[in-house]
Simulated scan of single mutants.
Amino acid sequence: MTAAPLTAVPAYAAPEPKAPLERITIARRPVGEHDVLIEIAYCGICRSDIHQVEGDWGPAPFPMVPGHEIAGVVTEVGPAVSRYAVGDRVGVGCFVDSCRRCDNCRAGLEQYCARGTTNTYPAGPDGTPAYGGYSTHIVVDENYVLRIPEGIGLAEAAPLLCAGITLYSPLSHWQAGPGKRVAIVGMGGLGHLGVKIARAMGAEVTVLSQSLSKQDDGVRLGAEHFHATSDPETYRKLANSFDLVINTVSAPLDLNAYLGLLTIDGTLVNVGLSAEPTPIGLFSLIGGRRSLAGSMLGGMRETQEMLDFCAVHRIGAEIERIGADEINAAYARVLAGDVRYRFVIDAATVAAPVAETA
């Protein structure tokens, strides 16, 4: 049994760069042979959504419907779909296609596709607009859809599709686990999930945050130690302490100071992205055979592994549910650091009367 064909759906979009988001109608493609139609239940707000709307990352097509932390339920499948059925709980993350032929794609590292992934938004391969998850429905190829296990609520699962995998991937790759000392820099939408996941992996977890204002939360979520990076004494006390430091902060940092926190053969991994150049003193690396690295998302196989891991350990994002009419206020609060720890849009509220048509 399939749902009626669906092409026009409500969404929230920025009509032009830096403009407030407003309700419009968008067109979704018909369900193809390998496609899945998803009724969106929740979509998380990622800081990158704000960067995109503000035009910080270069030209992009408008109107722009952001959203790449999507959780919902399958309502229709194409005739050749084998992985999903109507009623399945599913999610969609930051990309919805890749070349599928390069060495990286064949190795399950689609996020590093040599020809480039097709992002969930803002543009398709031909440069035309691609609409994200601030909407009621989305059509996605089954190969780029994830199964959300029953152990996680859909609202709490939505941010795992970006923030969760962004932390899980480096923690897994650099083998966080028993006997490893891990520091998470920043206690925000990314960092709070890093704390939960690293602790569930069995690592000894420390939070390095600008202040101690979130210390109680950090300890509640699994951190054994919490230190303020605004205190210069922190760097002296913690010198040579960590096997792995993961920086989730998008503001510029003195990475040399954080490299000094690593033990021999330790690694500093950056998942936060500052727009400003960051100077590195090579003595910060050479002195302890340390490594400076970066990490971006995870492939489809690893993202599913992350969701299954989080279900077993009952890990979901700490969220604040909002209605679609609160998106612009939520953006302002994200920029002010006023969220603990991820805004999630209730997609049912997107379906109010439509104001404009794209």
Results as ranks from 00 to 15, higher is better:
residue 343 F to L: 04
residue 149 P to M: 12
residue 107 A to T: 06
residue 11 A to S: 10
residue 204 E to G: 11
residue 138 I to A: 07
residue 206 T to A: 14
residue 311 A to C: 09
residue 154 L to S: 11
residue 138 I to Y: 09
residue 258 Y to F: 15
residue 340 R to C: 00
residue 344 V to T: 01
residue 229 T to E: 01
residue 305 E to T: 14
residue 279 P to Y: 04
residue 357 T to C: 13
residue 331 Y to M: 09
residue 283 F to P: 02
residue 79 P to D: 07
residue 134 Y to K: 05
residue 24 I to P: 01
residue 329 A to F: 10
residue 345 I to Q: 03
residue 31 V to Q: 06
residue 341 Y to V: 03
residue 338 D to V: 00
residue 249 V to Y: 08
residue 184 I to E: 02
residue 267 T to Q: 10
residue 23 R to G: 05
residue 218 G to A: 13
residue 215 Q to S: 11
residue 317 A to S: 15
residue 174 W to Y: 14
residue 25 T to I: 06
residue 65 V to H: 05
residue 99 C to G: 13
residue 336 A to P: 07
residue 28 R to K: 13
residue 328 N to G: 10
residue 5 P to C: 01
residue 329 A to V: 07
residue 265 D to A: 14
residue 228 A to I: 04
residue 272 G to E: 06
residue 199 R to K: 14
residue 122 P to C: 09
residue 85 A to D: 10
residue 307 L to S: 07
residue 67 G to P: 10
residue 108 G to H: 11
residue 297 L to G: 15
residue 167 L to M: 15
residue 304 Q to E: 09
residue 330 A to E: 04
residue 67 G to E: 02
residue 51 H to T: 00
residue 193 L to F: 07
residue 61 P to S: 14
residue 222 G to L: 06
residue 227 H to S: 11
residue 97 D to S: 15
residue 154 L to G: 10
residue 147 R to Q: 00
residue 59 P to D: 14
residue 184 I to D: 01
residue 72 G to V: 05
